[in-house]
Design a protein around this nucleic acid. Structure first.
Length: 491
RNA sequence: GUCCCCAUCGUCUAGCCUGGUCCAGGACACCGGCCUUUCACGCCGGCAACACCGGUUCAAAUCCGGUUGGGGACGCCA
């Protein structure tokens, strides 16, 4: 059996967006499943729009996602000679011809067709040129493009798409398309095929927007006498208004980088993206890498486009709720040892990392992460909502202070008093702290919730959190007492 | 406009090929309850969909035709 070889060919005209990432992931999964190779090829022939920065961004994005490639990155621009040589070959073999029609002539015809509400297709003016006529025009220095001779007659080109099934396109619908510009530079349709042949690509998994190109590319394969690879077109990702998501109209929300910056776990994003258009029959939605590699199949890719459920300005969900939910799921279920280094990165960046978390305080660090992670959605939450456990410069949420502190003016005295009782506890355990707290409430004849919520608010700044006595133990006797004594500053 | 593709809860989807087991299952979101000092987790429950019309059939989400709706492509971009 021949080796499975797939490729991901981004054009470096911007950051890696989630649509591209999903394509890359599907290719990667397919390669892994078949012990094949994923080839990364940067399609940088559009020198105008390609940037070095963008290339780096794509590489970084893939790396972060964990999409590893086996060959490349190759750069399409380095194979220009191949493309030119192939165009010449097609010319020599009579599969293509030189067309001297000018852009102006063509534009005029196109407009005329549009005005007449007809559809435009190149009229093959130059297809009938004899060798002499063409040579003559060329000698005059007239610029020309190279056009592929589309087959004529009643036939059709077809192929069996792995997700869409049999796809056919009649010859009538295919015009003599341009494969080389008048400046001598070959176009995408040709370059892509040449590169895929050279890279011995066996399966092309790409977006459905490439579906209409496929028949023409198959024609090129045929003209070159090469068996075309297997095609699998995947549905597109649309926004809530059903428009194709794009960097231009959606901005950073569709950039992989955005998710990295907002505390997403790479695999959580991958898992979410894979599920956008692919599923199994058994309702499984959470997959480990290995499970996903095993379960994935081209045939189970959905044919309908899917919608990326993102509402701009949503106060609760900054991106698709399912993506956030999935991230939160991984955050609270992954081994805490694996979570720790990721949180460390955040803390280091935030300046609240303590080297002891890797040594003396490691056990405490892991235990604390485990304690607080249940209600977090992203890695960012550890340094924000969870800040009070690790630093003293935590913030007090205004509504929390209002509800759990200001509402009970007596807390100004109660909390420091209770703090003094805490100081006297020699055996500072959860049970002891709870007992002392409840006795305090009973003595004052107030609901235990008042001091309990007051403590939480003063020592964490947060309205919600783990069980208060776990919180107290995690933050530690000294810090808790100190913070409780400073409650007056909140009034 | 032309060509192509698609159509199940708000969103992601299962079921469609091989009609009956589907008055349509799961997940997210939402609502209620339990738990509880809070929020979350967890558990329990609820809301909510076969785009429409016709045909085939004893029987259609499933097959066929049409309509409507949506998307994509129509470049000397990739």
């Amino acid at each position: 059996m021949t080796e499975v070889r797939v490729r991901f060919p981004p054009s470096p005209t911007g950051y890696l967006h989630i649509g591209g990432a999903r394509t890359a992931i599907y290719n990667w999964l397919f390669a892994k499943q078949h012990n094949g190779k994923l080839i990364l090829r940067i399609e940088d022939t559009d020198a105008e729009r390609s940037t070095q920065e963008s290339i780096q961004g794509i590489l970084d994005g893939l790396e972060w996602l964990g999409v590893t490639w086996d060959e490349g990155p190759y750069f399409q621009s380095e194979f220009a000679n191949d493309h030119v040589a192939t165009a010449k070959k097609l010319l020599d073999s009579g599969h293509a011809y030189k067309c001297f029609c000018t852009k102006e002539e063509l534009d005029a015809k196109r407009e005329a067709a549009a005005a007449a509400k007809g559809d435009y297709r190149y009229d093959k003016t130059c297809r009938g040129l004899s060798a002499e006529e063409a040579a003559e025009k060329e000698k005059q220095g007239l610029p020309y493009v190279v056009r592929f001779k589309a087959p004529e007659g009643d036939g059709a080109v077809g192929f069996d798409d792995k997700v869409y099934g049999r796809v056919e396109r009649s010859y009538d619908d295919i015009e003599d398309f341009v494969i080389v510009r008048s400046n001598g530079k070959p176009l995408y349709l040709l370059c892509n095929v040449v590169d895929d042949i050279r890279d011995r690509i066996t399966h092309i998994i790409r977006g459905q927007d490439g579906l209409v190109n496929t028949p023409r590319q198959i024609l090129i394969y045929e003209a070159l006498g090469v068996t075309a690879p297997v095609f699998a077109h995947m549905p597109l990702t649309l926004d809530l208004k059903k428009a194709k998501i794009s960097k231009r109209s959606h901005g950073e929300i569709v950039a992989v980088q955005f998710y990295r910056q907002h505390g997403f776990l790479p695999w959580a994003l991958c898992n979410f993206l894979v599920l956008l258009g692919w599923s199994t029959t058994d309702d499984q939605e959470i997959f480990s890498r290995e499970e996903m590699i095993n379960a994935f199949s081209l045939e189970r890719i959905n044919r309908a486009n899917s919608i990326f459920n993102y509402r701009k300005g949503d106060p609760k969900f900054f991106t698709d709720p399912k993506a956030i939910n999935m991230n939160a799921h991984y955050l609270r279920t992954m081994p805490v040892e694996e979570l720790a280094p990721l949180v460390k990165e955040e803390f280091v960046a935030d300046g609240i990392w303590d080297a002891a978390y890797d040594n003396d305080k490691k056990e405490w660090f892991l235990k604390t992460l485990d304690l607080i992670r249940d209600r977090f959605h992203t890695l960012k939450d550890f340094a924000q909502a969870g800040r009070a456990y690790f630093a003293d410069d935590y913030e007090f949420q205004p509504k929390t202070v209002k509800k759990n502190i200001l509402k009970h003016p007596d807390l100004k005295e109660w909390l420091p008093q209770l703090a003094e009782r805490f100081e006297e506890i020699s055996d500072f355990t959860k049970e002891e702290v709870e007992r002392v707290t409840r006795e305090f409430a009973t003595a004052l004849d107030i609901k235990p919730g008042i001091p309990i919520n007051g403590i939480r608010a003063s020592v964490t700044g947060q309205l919600a959190g783990p069980g208060l006595f776990d919180v107290v133990l995690a933050i530690g006797k000294e810090r808790v007492i100190e913070r409780m004594k400073k409650v007056a500053q909140l009034y």
